[in-house]
Simulated assay, not measured.
Amino acid sequence: MDLLLKKMEEYAKEYRVPIINENGKRVLVSVIGEKKPKKVLEIGTAIGYSALLIAQHSDPEIKILSLELDEQRAEVASSFLSESSYEDKIEIRQGDAAQILNTLTDFYDVIFIDAAKGQYPYYFKQALSLLAKDGVIIADNVLFRGYVESSEKPPRRYKTIVNRLREYIKMATEHPEFETKIHHDGDGLAVSYHRGKNSEET
């Protein structure tokens, strides 16, 4: 497994595919290892690196549904997963996550968001109806190269992304049903723990 992950890291570096970095990886593995989920929804597969990490540290009965917009990346991810012992536990569904999320009816112990940063607020809203009671929502890259917490204006090309990520953090930290911690490891991970109450109880 370690050899496969190393191979994926080298591929990501060579082809400039963004995957979770070493510091963010430690947080993700820690949260997953503590939660031991049986059902996980991942928004943004890339080459399947995070999906494998999650599978490796989850309950042995883990089932992961991973959504990926890019057809080529979905194919590469499937190829890598075929080299692992988790191939039958991870389903990659290629297509627009915004559309696929509307069709899902299952509840997930963990929802991991690592896709289009400008869509994070929308993904959070969708995740609310798909998260199991006491579930966890994890979002990567929420500090986006330091721009999100900086008082300086971001480059124009990143303005929308930074504003949307600020909106995401505000939604996650102020939502009455969640306790959210922003980890500064890596590029920033927001970990939102559901308090286990229905909205009418809060």
Rank of each mutant, 00 (worst) to 15 (best):
A46E: 08
V31H: 00
A51V: 09
K36D: 03
L52F: 08
K63F: 09
V17G: 02
V76R: 11
V31K: 00
L41W: 01
A77N: 12
G44N: 08
K13R: 15
L41H: 00
S30K: 10
G33A: 03
K13E: 15
V27L: 01
A51S: 15
Y49S: 09
N21M: 06
S78N: 12
I54R: 04
E34W: 06
I64L: 04
L65G: 02
E61Q: 14
V27E: 01
P60W: 06
L67F: 11
A46T: 12
D59K: 07
V27Y: 00
S78F: 13
L69D: 09
Q72M: 10
G33T: 00
S30R: 09
E42S: 03
H57F: 12
K13N: 13
I43A: 04
E61Y: 09
I62N: 10
L67E: 12
P60F: 10
P60C: 05
K63H: 13
I20R: 04
K13W: 10
Q72T: 14
P60R: 04
N21F: 11
L53S: 03
P18M: 04
K39R: 13
L65A: 02
K38R: 15
D70M: 08
A51W: 05
Y15L: 09
Y15Q: 10
I32Q: 01
S79I: 15
E75C: 08
V76I: 15
V29L: 14
I20K: 05
I19N: 05
S79N: 15
I62C: 06
I64P: 02
K35D: 02
A12W: 03
N21V: 03
I64Y: 01
K13Y: 12
E71I: 14
E10I: 15
K63R: 15
E61D: 14
Y49F: 15
G33Y: 02
S79T: 15
S66K: 10
Y11G: 07
I54D: 06
P60S: 05
N21I: 01
I47P: 02
G24K: 00
E75R: 15
I47N: 04
K25L: 06
S30T: 10
I54T: 12
E42H: 07
K38P: 01
V40A: 04
E61G: 13
P60Q: 05
E68W: 09
V40S: 04
G33M: 01
L65V: 07
S58Q: 06
L53Y: 09
V31T: 01
A74Y: 11
E22L: 11
K63Y: 09
I19E: 05
Y11W: 11
K39A: 02
Y15W: 11
Y49A: 05
V17T: 07
N23D: 14
V29N: 03
E34N: 11
I64K: 02
E34D: 07
E42P: 00
I32Y: 03
K35P: 03
D70H: 10
Y49V: 09
G48Y: 01
L69S: 12
V27W: 00
E10T: 14
L28W: 03
K39F: 05
K36T: 03
G44W: 05
I54E: 04
P60A: 04
H57D: 07
E42Y: 08
L69V: 09
D59M: 06
S66E: 12
E71K: 14
E14C: 05
E68D: 10
S50H: 13
D59R: 08
D59I: 07
E22R: 13
E68L: 11
P18V: 00
V27C: 00
